[in-house]
Design a protein around this nucleic acid. Structure first.
Lengths: 205, 205
DNA sequence: GGAATAAGAAACGCTTGCGTAGCTAAGATA
DNA sequence: TATCTTAGCTACGCAAGCGTTTCTTATTCC
């Protein structure tokens, strides 16, 4: 009931420029997660940023514009670094990394926006361009390419489908249940789906 | 601008009872697809059904209730019927069936509702219970179980992960691109992901 | 210090949806 | 035909968001 505001700071300094803009960006993401793309309002964002509506309209003219702007400066995406000679271990680590990433604000924002893609095409593009990386976050992708480069996987095996298996199963799990998969499920994804699709190593290890 | 109404029928008969209820249900689904879960309104549904707000409030007290009700009487879900001795063919057919199903109103409704799961848990349950079938629509599932029963697949291979591979990849494809996968992609899903996960047939065909 | 800049606050009329009430009239029932 | 049920319509006061205007007041810049 009293969750929508932000505390006033009576004697505090007045924000301007970059500082204010950043605060508004953060508020926009918060608003997105709280009420969904379709219910975002300028007044809501202003409330969350503890600023005046006027300050929003001075720079943007819709919630969508604010959001796109917000996406364009956020969410660094960690890359898995396949190091060892342990394909299975690296795949598991990559998918765990993806799972962790899915708990972040950025990832939840992606999910929020993608469903409403028909209603907000511009937003979806911004999100894919910046937050989600190229086509769905290459978590296992990085690992798989690494092992292909080192001759442990036959290059022909790395079709677009195969590159997506892990991510697809994790995303679907999250869709069906309301939690993220646990370690055992991730292990199973690697053992029952990804590794079989890779087939035997070319040289016969 | 004038898309939201429905034509009046001046001398026409006045709907009541079941007929009216069905019209309202349809209008609710339409409204869902048009504006999204989060922006549905009683007035919008009434407008679409060309009825009076009063007639809605006589039976339900929120858009969510109407939607749940609507879901509870809809969308027969076709089942793939694995017949021949053609595992690959049956899998391809099952996934094509899934793809076709995804173009229906019901499927789009699922997608609409699932993202906003945090905000509408009741809806999500109703949708999963009725529209989406048990946990994500058993398109390939039906096929796979059939072939296990006939000894063509080792039962141990049929883990929850494996049952989901095909559906997961199709869903992810639709998330990443804005179209549904074509036949070639479905073939690839079967050949590069599902079949490898099933391993060689137990008897050695 | 004084001027320029930009943020905060309040109010504007307008629109849309809320949930309810009062009434008219269509269609089923007797 | 008379009656009862139930659509359909209109209107209500209320709340929230719109986009804009006007004014005050912090900060920054010179």
């Amino acid at each position: 009931m009293s969750d929508d505001g932000r505390e006033r700071r009576p004697g505090a300094t007045r924000r301007r420029g970059e500082e204010l803009v950043r605060a508004i960006h953060e508020a926009a993401i918060e608003e997105l997660l709280a009420v969904g793309v379709d219910r975002m309002t300028m007044e809501g964002i202003a409330r969350r940023a503890a600023t005046a509506k006027t300050s929003l309209y001075r720079r943007w003219s819709s919630t969508e514009e604010i959001l796109i702007d917000a996406f364009l400066r956020v969410f660094p995406q960690e890359e898995p670094s396949p190091s060892s000679d342990d394909l299975r271990g690296d795949l598991v680590r990559a998918l765990r990394m993806m799972r962790d990433w899915m708990t972040t604000v950025g990832a939840r924002a992606v999910a929020e926006v993608v469903t409403a893609r028909d209603r907000n095409p511009g937003l979806v593009e911004a999100v894919y361009a910046r937050v989600f990386g190229k086509r769905g976050g290459g978590f296992t992708q990085t690992v798989l390419r690494h092992y292909v480069a080192h001759g442990a996987i036959a290059p022909a095996r790395l079709t677009p489908v195969v590159l997506d298996i892990g991510e697809a199963l994790v995303v679907k799990y999250r869709m069906d249940h309301s939690e993220l998969p646990d370690d055992a499920y991730i292990d199973a994804v690697v053992d029952h789906a990804i590794l079989p699709a890779l087939g035997p190593p070319p040289g016969g290890d």
